[in-house]
Design a protein around this nucleic acid. Sequence first.
DNA 1: CTCCCGATAT
DNA 2: ATATCAGGAG
Length: 219
Amino acid sequence: MTKIEKSKKIIKILNEKFGKPHCALNYNTDFELLVAVILSAQCTDVRVNMVTEKMFKVVNTPEAFMEMPLKDIETHIKSTGFFRNKAKNIKMCSKELVEKYNGEVPSKMENLVALPGVGRKTANVVRGEIWGLSDGITVDTHVKRLSNLIGFVKEENVEKIERELMEIVPKKRWIDFSHYLILQGRDVCIARRPKCSACEINHLCNYGRKMMRKSSEKN
DNA sequence: CTCCCGATAT
DNA sequence: ATATCAGGAG
C-alpha cells in the first residue's frame, strides 16, 4: 500500500471516529485565536483555555494589549510556561497588528509568520481555522510523533515533515488531517505510552503493527 | 543547536 | 525525578 492510500484510509477511519474536527482552543475573535495559539506553545489546550477565559474578559484587542504593562500580561499567562517570551511576543504582535494591519489579523502566510511569536505552525492553525486556508500542514508535537510512528516520515525536522506530508495527504484534507492526528495523539497514541491495542488505526501503523505482534507472541 | 518555563501525569 | 504539553527566536 502506498503512503497516499494509507493516508486516505487513516483519514476515513478517524473521520468516522471524530467527525468534523474543530479547534480545541476557545476564542470569540480572530485576534483572540491568534493569542490563544501563541500561548499554546508547549502547553496543553486545556491550560490555555483556563488562562484566556479570565484574561479576555480584561483585554481582548490588540489596542488593549499594546498598552498593557508587560508585567500584567505575564501575570495573566504565567501558568502556560515561557511566559516572558509569550508576553513580549503578544504585546509586540499587537503593536504590529495595529500599526500595519489596522488591528486586523492578516490572512497571508508571509505576513503572519513575520509577526513576533508566530511561526509556521501558528500561522497554519490560524489560517485553517479562520479562513479554511491551507498552504501547508500544521505540524505540532503530535503530528510529528504520529507521522513518524505510522511511517509517513522518518524525520525530526518539522518543516521537512510538513513538505513530505504535503506529498502524501490529499490537499483537501490537510486541515482535517492535522486535527485527526492531534486528537488521536491526545486520546490514544499518547507520547508516554501509546495504547496500540485500543487504536483504531494500529493495522495501518508501523509501530502499531510491531506492538500488536509483540503482544500476540506472549499468548 | 540552545534557551525559554509552569503544570501535570507517570 | 522525569517526560510531555497544538513552538518560536537567536
